[in-house]
Write a protein that binds this DNA or RNA. Structure first.
Lengths: 229, 229
DNA sequence: TATTTACTTTGACAATGATCAATTTTGCTC
DNA sequence: GAGCAAAATTGATCATTGTCAAAGTAAATA
């Protein structure tokens, strides 16, 4: 029974980008240090300040990482989706979680113990490389968010968000499907929900976008980009 | 002559925390991939958007990492001091620099090429571990800054800054020696210099601190911590 | 030491974006 | 599909913080 479970965990791991390419032995060793968490919508996986046991691998669902504040407000720093990891940094630091994690939908998460991760990286340099690349990406992403929060107006932040959310090519018209509620997006952009709504309204009035529920259609990419007033 | 230089570079490297404990052979190999930069005060080492060649090691001086904005304003994200590294992330990503680097004082910096760093890490797992720890620390630090910028008022930011800059123990009275100009500190706290000045003025009025040039004396740690209005 | 330049402080004012409150819309459960 | 709860919108108001301008202070350079 337990073997069965471990086996399936190893199989799940093998399908995660981070662990792809590992040998069966390595996967088996890592799976021994795994715990499976099935969390329901709105359930909290850990709070800011909790003592971390390891790194998390998202198998299914959606989890938000947020900074809580005294008055119940919170700032969402990252949304985690399937195939990604979070809490990598705590493996290498002896510090409490700097953020809280809460499920936005029913999710399946694996917790890989610090020790097992460290051992696996010691014997497999490719894994180290991937962890380094992952941390580096998060760092750059966070710097981008910092830039957004500190140097841009609410309008500029929304415009940037829409442009970046679109396909990479230069088609002038494209759809942006919001992957969560508008209040969540607003929090990520460090805006009050009301402000986000108003900015979208303003852009609609100008004929630059069209909002229909959680789908925003950008009508003119170039004009939108040049629009900051 | 060149050998002499390489030799001295290897020696310099051996004194940097990141490379401490490496063998002479390893140090020699890394030093081959190093370039030495002596930059004068205010000189720009690289701009945001430049193509990175490797990671930087600060041997001497002080360098600021900042996000430039269109109107000449900038947001300082980090101050680098001797014995630290910066630009680690670019070794693992094929992306331009997300920040600019400018010397605040005459500085000596080593640039270690990506390739050499990657090779060194492949053969020395301890180096990988240190890089992972370094990136993790930066990530946590940046999250802390994010928290500051998004969830705290100007007053709270300054108070936090003073508390964190002080010695770790609980002595009620302590000095904070600003390691750079007040406008720089203000930029790091995401405040206009004028606002920073006013907040310090307000705290002085209340008898919680005493400002004398670049030295701020905290007169009552506990009272300062509890002061948010 | 003189002189210029950069930094800091102070005041008056403006504006961006938050908050509060009320309404409408959407989505979910039974 | 009815009823309820959560989310989104809209309007009015307010507070915090940034901007501009001027004066004062410190520091760097000749």
């Amino acid at each position: 029974m337990i073997l069965e479970t471990r086996h399936s965990i190893a199989e799940i791991l093998s399908r995660q980008p981070l662990f792809r390419g590992l040998s069966e032995v390595e996967l088996a060793q890592i799976s021994v240090g795994c715990r499976e968490f099935r969390v329901k919508k709105n359930e909290v996986l850990f709070h800011k300040g909790d003592i971390p046991e390891g790194m998390h691998v998202m198998v299914m669902g959606q989890i938000k990482l947020a900074l809580p504040s005294s008055q119940g407000v919170e700032k969402i720093v990252h949304m985690c989706g399937p195939g990604t990891t979070f809490g990598e940094a705590v493996v290498f630091l002896d510090k409490p979680y700097p953020v809280s994690a809460q499920a936005m939908s029913e999710s399946l998460v694996l917790l890989v113990s610090k020790r097992v991760m460290l051992e696996a990286m010691e014997s497999n340099h490719m894994l180290s490389r991937k962890m380094l690349a992952g941390l580096s990406s998060r760092l750059h992403e966070l710097l981008g968010d910092m830039e957004s929060c500190t140097l841009r107006t609410s309008m500029q932040r929304v415009v940037c968000f829409l442009i970046q959310s679109g396909v990479a090519d230069e088609t002038p018209v494209f759809d942006v499907a919001l992957q969560s509620s508008k209040q969540n997006i607003a929090s990520q952009l460090n805006l009050a929900p009301e402000t986000f709504s108003r900015v979208l309204g303003h852009l609609s009035e100008k004929g630059l976008i069209q909002v229909k529920g959680r789908t925003i259609t950008v009508l003119d990419r170039q004009q939108l980009r040049n629009f900051t007033a």
